[in-house]
């Protein structure tokens, strides 16, 4: 148990990302508000970003800028950070697009509640 706990503590960024992921997932699952679902998705993505960046971290590593004069013992891995920058960009664009769609849905249905939208559409289909 103690070993497990210590492992958890040592890997706290991963734990945080798992917690974030679960929060995001449950938000997407349980909230019927479209915005909240979108936010849930963003939280989930943040969890993954966090995991990625944490993977690139080296304990006590320096900023990965090569300083000829003062070469550090170790640098953190810069690639995950760079990649996550791209990931964030992607995430933002997705969010933007989703928001645009929500606007259209609101225009059409007059609500941002997914369940009500579904009911309205099914009602249309049934008729």
């Amino acid at each position: 148990m103690r070993i497990l706990l210590s492992k958890l503590l040592i890997n706290y960024p991963y734990m945080a990302s798992v917690v974030l992921f679960i929060i995001g997932a449950s938000t997407v699952l349980t909230r019927s508000n479209l915005f909240k679902k979108l936010i849930g998705i963003n939280i989930m993505e943040s969890a993954i970003f966090l995991m990625f960046i944490a993977a690139g971290n080296t304990r006590g590593g320096a900023v990965p800028i090569l300083d000829q004069a003062n070469p550090g013992a170790s640098y953190i891995n810069p690639i995950p950070s760079a990649l996550m920058l791209t990931g964030i960009v992607v995430s933002v664009s997705v969010t933007a697009f989703a928001l645009a769609l929500i606007v259209r849905l609101y225009d059409s249905y007059g609500t941002t509640n997914a369940r009500r939208i579904a009911e309205m559409r099914n009602g249309v289909a049934d008729r």
Binding site: L29, S32, K37, A114, R115, A118
Partner: peptide, 13 residues
């Protein structure tokens, strides 16, 4: 009850 997109997401997760 999970409806529509929530259901889909639920299936996925």
């Amino acid at each position: 009850s999970l409806a529509d997109i929530s259901l889909s997401a639920g299936v996925l997760i």
